[in-house]
Structure formats: structure tokens, C-alpha cells
């Protein structure tokens, strides 16, 4: 008994020593999701990133090689991140042991990562691994501060600024052109995630729709992603219908098939949007993460073609991919 206790004590103090040693590395102060200022290591070599959006950001800053582990979601813009070990699951959350195995200098988590992230944070802290909680990437307003934070940590402020500027430019442009629209000038929008499943005002899509100068017909529903009555959609008679399409590599055919399905639905055939041919399909990849601003551009163009005559979302998307990810635009993301 005594011997064992002694060994454990010895090991514990050894561990403690090694952590104090690493604690001496240079740190940088950043703001976490709860608004607290915390110190994290500067220039970490091995980072485990559970949410997918920060992975995209790190890749965009040209530091993708530092990411050594990921969560479930594979960031759409970083195909190579697919091969990284996955150390968390949607339903259970981070796997602390697997994370420790990767010997990270820093773990980036998300407030919405799994059901019990708090326990994981405690355990990682106990193991001496610094953890930074980032705000859920589903909130569009948090994109820019996140980029800034990551720039700081990775010592890539110049690149971070450039990246942030690009995004800010277009988001600002949309806001600038739509902010003075009167209520009458805002078309009504019915957004569909899945057959008759829509979104209310507590979802990020609400931000897209209102930023693009539209009114979400289901904004006031009591459930975040409610299934709504088809006859209500028919009666509300939205000006525009936008539906999300999921899938790894979407082609124009699949998107057009999705559109045909909506247009031919008995409940929607009579709706203004269908009659005016204002039914659009957008890849879900453009509705989350770092590509969200591109999605907003499509929304804006569809809602107010006159105001955004000079804007070609596809071209901007292409530029965005080339400039920050060194990729070509492949497949279809929006239709028509």
C-alpha cells in the first residue's frame, strides 16, 4: 500500500514538474467563448481542433500542418483534413484519452462540442493541456473575432487580417446595400432544410436571410427547426424559396433534381416563388463555417438581383478558394 502510494506521488510530482516546464513557454492572451481573457501557448506546434470552422481558418492562414486531430465534422474546404484522426463524436463529445495520445500543445473546442464538453475540459486541464473554447461557429458574428484570435495564436496576424478583410468586405457590402430597405421591399423567404422543415429566428439562417434583406416567414415559430404545415406555406405565399442540399460532391444535376422535387410538390406548385421561378437550391457547405459569407452573397443576389447586379457569387467563391485554400472551384454549390 505505502509503496504504491509513494510511487503514485512520485509520478504525480514528475508529471507536475514536466508541466511547469512546458508552462514556461511563451504565451499569448486571448478571449475565449465566455468572454474571459486566458493565456494560451504562442505558436503551438500540435493543435487538436474539434470544431471544423477553426480548422478551415487555420488552413486558410497556411498553418494546416499544425492541426493533428479533428472532431467529427470534416471541414468542406480542407479535404486533406479528412485523414486526421477523429477524437470526438457528435453524441458523446471529446475523447480525452485519444486527445492526450496526440500530445497536443493546445486543444480548440467549441461550446457546442458534444454533450459533456465541460468534463473533457476539466480532464484536459488536469492533464496540463491548455484548452481554448471558441464560440459555436454557427454564429456568423463570431467568424471575424475567431480569425483574429487564431492569427494571434499562430503569429499570423497579417494573413489573418487579409482573410478577415476579404470576408468583412463582402458581408459589409451586403449590409450596406440592404440596410435601408423598408419592410415592403423585403421579400418573404421560405427556407427549407428538408421537406417542410424550416428554421426560426434563433438559427444562423435567420441571419443570412435578414442580412440579405429578406423576411423569414417562419421566424416566429416556437421551435428552432420546426416542421411546418404545407398549407400554411401555401397560404403565406412566400416570394422566394431557398432549400439546402446536402452531400459531399453536388453536381448541377443533383441540385436541379432537388429543385424539381420542390417545384412539383402539390403544396408548393401554387406559391408565388414557384410561379415566379424563384426557387433556389444551395449547398449546405455554404451555410456553415468559413464559406458562410459566400452563402450570404448567393442569398443577397437571389433576394435582390437589382441591388447586386455587379456581384457574381460564383466568381467570388472561386477567388476565395484560390486565394486562401489554393483550390479550384469544383462541382456545384448553388442552383440556378
Amino acid at each position: 500500500m505505502n509503496k504504491n502510494t509513494f510511487i503514485i506521488l512520485m509520478l504525480a510530482s514528475l508529471l507536475a514538474l514536466s508541466f511547469t516546464a512546458s508552462g514556461e513557454a511563451e504565451t499569448v492572451q486571448v478571449v475565449d467563448a465566455s468572454g474571459e481573457h486566458i493565456d494560451v501557448p504562442l505558436n503551438p506546434e500540435r493543435i487538436v481542433v474539434l470544431p471544423s470552422t477553426p480548422i478551415e481558418m487555420i488552413y486558410a492562414l497556411g498553418e494546416g500542418k499544425r492541426v493533428v486531430g479533428r472532431g467529427v465534422g470534416v471541414p468542406p474546404q480542407c479535404p486533406s483534413a479528412k485523414d486526421l484522426p477523429c477524437v470526438a463524436s457528435c453524441s458523446v463529445g471529446p475523447n480525452v484519452e485519444a486527445i492526450l495520445d496526440l500530445k497536443p500543445d493546445l486543444v480548440l473546442m467549441c461550446t457546442s462540442n458534444g454533450s459533456k464538453p465541460a468534463t473533457a475540459v476539466e480532464r484536459l486541464h488536469a492533464a496540463g493541456i491548455p484548452v481554448l473554447s471558441l464560440p459555436s461557429s454557427c454564429e456568423p458574428d463570431t467568424l471575424l473575432p475567431q480569425i483574429e484570435t487564431l492569427g494571434k495564436i499562430l503569429n499570423k496576424s497579417v494573413e489573418a487580417n487579409e482573410f478577415a478583410d476579404f470576408i468583412e468586405k463582402y458581408l459589409g457590402l451586403i449590409e450596406e446595400r440592404t440596410k435601408d430597405l423598408g419592410p415592403d421591399e423585403k421579400p418573404t423567404v421560405y427556407f427549407e432544410c428538408k421537406e417542410y422543415k424550416t428554421v426560426n429566428e434563433e438559427t444562423p439562417l435567420q441571419h443570412h436571410i435578414s442580412l440579405a434583406g429578406g423576411t423569414n416567414i417562419a421566424a416566429e415559430q416556437p421551435v428552432k427547426k420546426p416542421i411546418v404545415s404545407s398549407e400554411w406555406v401555401l397560404e403565406t405565399n412566400p416570394d422566394i424559396i431557398i432549400a439546402g442540399a446536402k452531400g459531399e460532391s453536388l453536381t448541377e444535376e443533383t441540385l436541379s433534381a432537388a429543385r424539381d422535387e420542390i417545384v412539383s410538390r402539390p403544396g408548393l406548385k401554387e406559391v408565388k416563388a414557384v410561379k415566379d421561378k424563384k426557387v433556389y437550391i444551395i449547398s449546405k457547405k455554404l451555410m456553415k463555417g468559413i464559406s458562410e459569407p459566400i452563402g450570404c452573397l448567393y442569398f443577397a443576389k437571389w433576394l435582390h438581383p437589382d441591388l447586386f447586379k455587379d456581384i457574381d457569387p460564383t466568381a467570388i467563391h472561386k477567388e476565395f478558394l484560390q486565394k486562401f485554400f489554393g483550390q479550384e472551384l469544383e462541382g456545384s454549390y448553388a442552383y440556378p
Partner: peptide
């Protein structure tokens, strides 16, 4: 026409 659509195409099925 609206009543027809709602009753026969939406509610009936």
C-alpha cells in the same frame, strides 16, 4: 382554387 389545393392536395393525402 386555394381551397381546392389545400383540401385535396395537402390535407386529403
Amino acid at each position: 382554387h386555394f381551397a381546392e389545393v389545400v383540401v385535396f392536395q395537402l390535407r386529403l393525402p
